[in-house]
Structures are given as structure tokens and as C-alpha cells.
Nucleic acid binder design. Sequence first.
DNA 1: ATGCTCCTGCGAA
DNA 2: CTAACGTTCGCAGGAGCAT
Length: 437
Amino acid sequence: MFPLPANRAIALIDGNNFYVSCERVFNPKLGDKPLVILSNNDGCIVSRSQEARDLGIPMGMPFFKAQHFVKSHGLQWLSSNYTLYGDMSARMMNVLGEFSPHQEIYSIDECFLDLSNMMPNSELIEYGKSIKNRIYQYLGLPTCVGIGPSKTLAKLANHIAKKNKQFNGVFAWATLSNEEQISWFKKITVNEIWGVGRRIHVSLQQMGIETVYDLAQSNPEMIRRRFSVVMARTVAELQGTSCLAMSELEETARKQQIISSKSFGHGIEELQHLQEAVASYICRAAEKLRAQNSVCGYVTVFVRTNPFAPNQKQYRNQITIPLSIASADSRRLTRAAFYGLDRIYRKGFIYKKAGVILSDISPVEQYQDDLFTKIDQEKSTQIMQTMDALNHLYGANTLMLASTGATLNNPRHWRMRANHKSQRFTTRWNEIPKVNT
DNA sequence: ATGCTCCTGCGAA
DNA sequence: CTAACGTTCGCAGGAGCAT
């Protein structure tokens, strides 16, 4: 096992507190003050600057529990600006794609690059530095680069690069001696490994597996029986055997399920308000469905009360409605969702969240039926295409279904809070701040 | 015994 | 001012059902 095999080289590039960094690019005044970015509804803290981490604010903490830091330490905070982060991400991924013929975009701020057979191992660190430098030069975003013979080891390398300043943000296993590799494995606790979450960490500890080294040394067959084939693969990957292939763009482009769900800005009781919310979620999900040229066969709708309000009566339920003919028509999907909502709605509860799931997704070109439904289908497709084109051209929600309750004097209290959002600097001309002269 | 669907748990960002 | 706790995805495994 040691030294780790160096036949392959996979890099994992990860943005440093990505949302915070995106905001700082466009607002230098946020400077080196503690800054946090909040989730939907301004609920939880989902990105923290180093200064905020130093205050002891943990990831995922509800914001109201950290709010005292605003007064005491000048903590800055912003609502999430997904338009901005998504656009910055797309630009970053474009630049990163130049560095390898094989790129896997893993999340909004992370991607794998396959660097195998491109250079001698001795040059990997320099190459990693040039990646990091170019992203900073072109976009102003700080990143870290981890390089290893498997994805899991690349992830671990990235973790080391992030936590240990002396590597200047780039770490590669291949440049280390046998003893150095073992020493890192023994120094890092097992929960830092990709695929080991809270529950599995506890189980591993009970078995006496505390460090990365312990897990890498464990019996793969025992791990498979006790956990799953996923964990067994993780062990193999830690030993340097690459099991997780780079997945090409086409494979991940088409989603197998599309979810749209949100907590409400305020709790709501009436069926009609739930319908408005559900209709608007359906529209968002159906738009995504059409954008990937798919239709769906099932519509799931779910509702729930606020589980964090224990003095309120609790209720949660969901129902899945099969469609007789697969569809991507917002109106058809809304009808199905309303049908389901009628069946699970109970009077007398204060609802805090609802959502829809489109599943049994297939490519639209596979879809065939008799002549009459075909004519119907074409008409539906035209209407939806027109709607999508207008919304694309003039901005989201230019054209909406009336069932979403989008009339002029409807306050739509269920809509989420976002009280403190920055401008969409890179995608809206009219939101670029004016220069003071 | 085998294969399917549906549901749940887990992990990730 | 109050009161206030995210969202979206894939995978594996097991239950339940049909054959």
C-alpha cells in the first residue's frame, strides 16, 4: 500500500469558502472582516470567511444563534445570491477545463481534472500552482488544489492543502516519501474522508477505527459486510486503487429526478396558499425538465409543518401521482400536483414547507404515442417553448401560470425571505453599482 | 428463487 | 420591530409484491 501508487493523477480543485469569496470579489469593503452567507430564507449559515470561523461559528448554524456577533465583533452577513455564484462558477469551470481533456464538475465550487500521463509526477505541484494562480488572476477567487492517484485521495490532498498553510494551497501525494504519507494518514481523523459522514464516523469509532490510516489498513470484505460496497470502494481508493471513474459531462447532464422545495417566509394555513407555492415550484422544476429535453412520469408533492416549533401540532405527508402520459407541460404537472395536494392537505395545521419531485424521467425523443396525443403534445411543446423563451429573454417570471398566485395585489406571504442580498454583478447591467465621482 | 418498484437512510456541497 | 433552523442530488439496501 505504501508508498501510494503514482500511476494516475487526479486533481481536485475546490474554492475557498466560495460564496464568501464571490461576494468579496465585487465588494472589497467586505475585506477581512468576519462574513457569513446565509441559506434560503436567511435561515442557516452556509459559508464562512476565515475570520467568521475564528469566532467559532460552525457550518450550518441557524443565523439567529450567531447574530450577537454582529454587534460584538462586526460580523457581516448576506443572503445567498445564487445568480452571482452560479455565474462565477460557470466562468471558473471554463477556465479549469483548459487544464485537462477530462473534467468532471462535481459541485458549484469543485471539479476533478484527470492529469494522468500528462507530465512527470515531479511537475504536478507546479502545474497545480499554475491552475490556482490562473483562477485567481482571471476571477479573483482563491482555491486549493489536491492531487492523488484516486478521487478519494485527491479529496484528502485538497483537505491537507486547505488546512496547512505551508503548502500554499497545493498538495500532491506523489511528491511525498513513504514515511511522510504514513504520517499524514495517521494524523487525520477518519471523518475527514469523502463518504464518511456523522453516522458512519460513530460506527467506525466503535470498531476502533479512528484515523485514515486505520481505515486504509482495514479488511475490505469486513467493511463491505458491515457497511456497504461504497465504503469498501472508499477503502480501496485510500489504498491507491482508483475505483471511482471520472464521469463525463453527458452522463451527469440529465438528472434522474428534479426537486423544487422551499421553506416559506411565514407559516401558512390555507390550501389556496399552498397551491400557489406548489404551482410555482412545479414551474421551476418543469423548466429544468424541459431544459434537459426530458419528460417525467411521476409527480410527487409533499408538505410539512415546522419541526422546530415543538409547541405546534406536527404533520407531514407526501404523495406520488403517476401520469398516464409522460409530460413536461407545467399545466399538466400542476394539475397532477394539485390533485395530490388535495389528498394530503389537512386543515388546522401551520405549514412551513412544501415541495415537488419530478421522477421517472426519460428523454423526450424517446417519447412516442398515437397521432392524436402527438398533435396535443406538439401544441403543448410550442406553448412551453414560447414561455421558456420569453422568460429567458426578459428574465425569470416574466410569464407565469395564474395558479402561482402572481397577481398584483397578492402579497404571497409564503415567498421566502432574502433580506440582505448583494447585486447580481455579472448578469444584470442595471445592478452594477454606480461609481461615486 | 428471482426480479421489480417503492421507500428510507446516508452523504455531499 | 418580531421571530427566526437549507436545498438538491445520487446511491445502496431492504421491504413488499409479483412471478
